[in-house]
Design a protein around this nucleic acid. Structure first.
Lengths: 343, 343
DNA sequence: TTGAAAGCGCTACCAC
DNA sequence: GTGGTAGCGCTTTCAA
């Protein structure tokens, strides 16, 4: 006698069929078949046997047999970043609604890694592949990435990007330019005149679009934002902190600091505070994204709202052909205490 | 002639073998075999053919053939919650290091859903299943969950829980009781005497352990925390906000409010502020977890640090047999501006 | 309606 | 070392 709890193998459909006294085919049909072309007494026997055995269909085997999976692969830059985790939450929720399971990986903002991950995830034969990070300009891996995605698509996969449509795939368009431009307009209207910015490197499309949009918004009102007044740092909280530190020596030259995303803005506020400068009173601060926490920082952060979870859901819908191709995601300027009306 | 870009099927190993003029077996060995028992010229031909065709091994097929996957399934309550997204980041990073891919799902703090998800994820035949949420007491689904997990384990799967070991599986133990107790001690030492708390329902083990730990810490110094001074709300930011609102009418009775997790604490601070009460000056506030954002709120939040990403990594290591079973995760009280020394 | 059997893409064992 | 080939667990014809 073998010990009963030695790592056995999970019960197979075969086991269920035998236990129920029916054929493999009948068992399959009762358990997973779409056309319920199995007579009730048989069905019941099979279901009972399956329950008794604790049977769970082997998804891999189903995938091989059917030639398609129920998987969506999601690539983000950093899961711990609220921007991406909110989007991921949206994707997962939407996927769950239609019975899809999502597998995630993090590119860590490395395009080489991104490429490798796409390649690796292709092996899963996901129905959908969603790339959530910003595109980067002049990326040496872009051609290869594009080829990889095209290959995936040409073999029946669906690709969706989130952000900008620099690649020829369905895209949930985030109009970073117009959002930032509208923000600039609102800030000017509030009385701000002397601007500085903290941005990621220009090759990061998202960073660049937001910065140029912001500039355009200022230019509409005859205000100039010189390159000298733009601190270029990492696209992270610490980057925002560092960027603010760069600006602090000349901080009295500015009445507003725009960080191209909220996590950077939040870092910048901390840097200001640490330097004894009160954000929102001595200098205004604005961000972009409207991640959940920015309403809870002090002062609450003025920002441009992106409905992050909806973006995630929309990305999936787009890929599934459920969503309308439609316009860019609507964006909204949210004015909060970090930018009080000025003079 | 068929159109060349109609959804074709991905190239198979068979295609590669034919293209390279070798046998299936040789192709398999050159591409994925461990023992490199293939002569160089052949290997090269295969590799070249694979590259030419854009071949990616079908992971599902490999899984069926090998009888095991490279998947780890991760269940969290809410991906958008920084607590879980930080843990997830740790799991994903660690998984990536050993060539595993992680699939995620969200229980939304619903034990019924949790059970269903475990069942569903079992179908993937993951090597590892990680449950990151708090256990809940008196859960009607617990028996079924336990059975499901045991079945999974008895068929060769590894299970790891994160939080408390109320279930007989490997667990990354978070000593919420001692952490909260230490926090209480520190606060008393700082001069705080009149405490209130905001907690999740007592059936949530994590909430309860932290609250009772905190109470114990106070009791060590002869201080009592009455049930009347504990607001019981949802385990979320909004729950924290609501909890603080409950306490506000009597806020002058207290000199410190302890929220059982950081997101609640952050919500509570906002509620206080909205009511014209300055957190950290009129009343101290403390949380638990040390999620990334709490150093950027104002005042910076006193809390108990859990190395969240490390917890995630550890969970995976434990499951893989790489990690030492060892003691609970070390916890550390982080005193910040939200609890200045008092009188 | 049911069952037998031929795959699905891949691995691994067994000869040569 | 290399090539057949028998599975892996499942779906889906095709007959009966």
């Amino acid at each position: 006698m073998t010990s009963p709890d030695l790592p056995a193998n999970p019960p197979t459909l075969h086991d269920v069929a035998r236990e129920a006294g029916v054929s493999l085919a009948t068992a399959s049909r009762s358990l997973n078949g779409s056309a319920r072309t199995v007579r009730e007494p048989y069905r019941e026997k099979v279901l009972a046997a399956a329950a008794r055995l604790g049977y769970t269909p082997n998804l891999s085997a189903q995938a091989v047999a059917k030639g398609s999976t129920m998987t969506v692969a999601l690539l983000v830059a950093d899961i711990a970043d609220p921007y991406f985790s909110s989007i991921a939450a949206g994707v997962i929720r939407a996927a769950d609604d239609v019975g899809l399971v999502v597998t995630m990986a993090a590119t860590e903002r490395d395009t080489r890694r991104e490429l490798e991950l796409v390649r690796a995830m292709r092996g899963q034969r996901p129905r959908v592949l969603i790339l959530a990070g910003s595109r980067v300009e002049g990326d040496e891996n872009e051609l290869a990435l594009r080829a990889e995605l095209e290959a995936f698509q040409s073999t029946g996969g669906r690709v969706t990007l989130i952000s900008q449509n620099t690649l020829p795939f369905e895209t949930v368009l985030l109009d970073n330019f117009e959002g930032a431009r509208a923000l600039a307009a609102s800030l000017v209207e509030l009385g701000y005149r002397r601007f500085a910015a903290i941005s990621g490197v220009a090759s990061l499309r998202t960073a660049r679009d937001r910065l140029t949009g912001f500039r355009a918004g200022l230019a509409d009102h005859g205000i100039d934002l010189s390159d000298d007044d733009v601190a270029v740092t990492a696209f992270t909280r610490d980057g925002g902190y560092a960027g603010a530190e760069q600006l602090i020596p000349r901080i009295t030259d500015f009445d507003l600091v725009f960080a191209v995303n909220d996590v950077m803005a939040v870092g910048a506020m901390s840097a200001l505070r640490d330097a004894g400068i009160a954000p929102g009173v001595e200098v205004g601060v604005a961000g972009y994204d409207d991640i959940p926490t920015v309403r809870d920082v002090t002062p609450a952060l003025t920002t441009v709202r992106i409905p992050l979870e909806e973006v995630g859901a929309r990305a999936l819908a787009l890929a599934m052909g459920t969503g309308e191709q439609s316009a860019p995601i609507a964006t909204e300027v949210i004015l909060r205490a970090s930018t009080p009306r000025r003079g």
